[in-house]
Design a protein around this nucleic acid. Structure first.
Lengths: 221, 221
DNA sequence: ATGTTCTGTCCAAGCACTTGACATCCAGTG
DNA sequence: CACTGGATGTCAAGTGCTTGGACAGAACAT
């Protein structure tokens, strides 16, 4: 049975700061970023993004305004980081759903899409993106300016799939991941009603199922 | 259903650093403590505690030795904090076990004791405590110098029990918690063989079951 | 007795966060 | 249209924590 308390100490070296786990300084830095981005997201839940000031974000995170600028440089950069951060949380949820059904690709895809659609429906930031009419510089980031999002998410999705089903050939996995990412972004911008979520999830899964089956079969699964 | 991604933003205030969630500075501080204590625990898993130097702890955590002294003051204080920290992790595991069986006090106690005994059997720091002959200043902290441990743990255990079973009268809950803590510490110092763990857990649970039943019955459960 | 190692403390330099100020830009208003 | 208020972005001085080096003293091993 897995250890009840702490997983495992990993290394046995006397001390030696190898390129091992993140040092405290790194952890503290990423903690600062996370704190700030979560503050920004929470504030965006209520009011329009445009009205969320840098000062408010700093104050909510308990740091000075200058620190926010030190960390992100400018408001547009913070905005982009915010969207990226949200994407990463979505990807983490999706990864969990996929890994939990590794034995059945179709079920895994259904679960992943279901999780994604529900998360998107609940997410405060996603709500802000589609709530705010045109010129609230949030929408472009997931559409016309969304290439970084698409490529980063596609790459991670592809690597998740390739880790879960190693026989999947690289190019096809990448293409499938990219396609799914595009679909996902589409459903962010144009959601389906709540009562159609499950049907949508299984529908898309059904759609790609034969393709995946063909790939798995053709490549020695 | 609970939100898939982030639980809830809590406040709605524009900004205002209320005594709300921990500010970044606080979080960073506690992160530093945790990092250092985990480094210490991991190092103690291999070698005797006496041979774990302050320098090694600092190096493993990726900070300077001075920072360790700034945070804990001295080696004895760090040692005490280490033991306290470990206690808190045990308590967290126990709390989970109890809350998962809130409807059946006897089963809850059995589960809690089982989790505790297994965790104690696996724990690297507990192993260090009993491995090291007398004068490795670790043992006193859970015996002769163990009163802080006993009182802190007892208080938390009592509050867990009172939260789970509100009808439990305060004094009796405190007494029961204190007794269980003493028993727990005893099993840390003098463990039972692996194959007797379950029997021990249910045995103790059986022992206190009538007492608890009487309390619950007498006070309107 | 001597050399080694660790503890605990001190200090100078570096770095990050804070604070307050300032120029600039933009929106709303008289 | 000029003006005021609020927000962004930048800057400089001040503070506090971390760092790395150094050192005395205690404990231990040879």
């Amino acid at each position: 049975m897995r250890s009840v308390l702490h997983p495992d100490p990993r290394t046995t070296s006397t001390d030696a700061r190898t390129t091992d786990e993140p040092t405290f300084a790194d952890a503290s830095r990423s903690l600062l970023r996370r704190t700030l981005l979560e503050a920004a997201r929470d504030l965006a839940a209520d009011r329009p993004w445009r009205s969320v000031t840098m000062a408010a974000i700093a104050s909510r995170a308990g740091v000075s305004r200058q620190t926010v600028y030190n960390e992100f440089g400018s408001r547009p950069q913070l905005t982009e980081a915010l969207v990226m951060h949200e994407l990463e949380e979505f990807l983490a949820a999706i990864e969990g759903a996929i890994r939990s059904r590794a034995d059945d690709p179709a079920a895994a895809l259904t679960a992943a899409l279901g999780v994604f659609l529900q998360a998107a429906a609940e997410d405060a930031l996603v709500a802000a993106v589609i709530r705010e009419d045109g010129r609230d510089d949030l929408l472009p980031l997931v559409t016309s300016e969304g290439r970084p999002l698409l490529e980063f998410g596609g790459a991670r999705l592809a690597s998740i799939m390739r880790e879960t089903w190693p026989v999947l050939p690289g190019p096809e996995a990448a293409f499938l991941a990219g396609t799914v990412m595009r679909l996902g972004l589409s459903y962010v911008v144009l959601p389906v009603p709540d009562d159609e979520r499950d049907a949508t999830a299984s529908g898309v899964a059904e759609l790609v199922r034969p393709y995946v089956a063909m790939l798995l079969e053709r490549h020695g699964a």
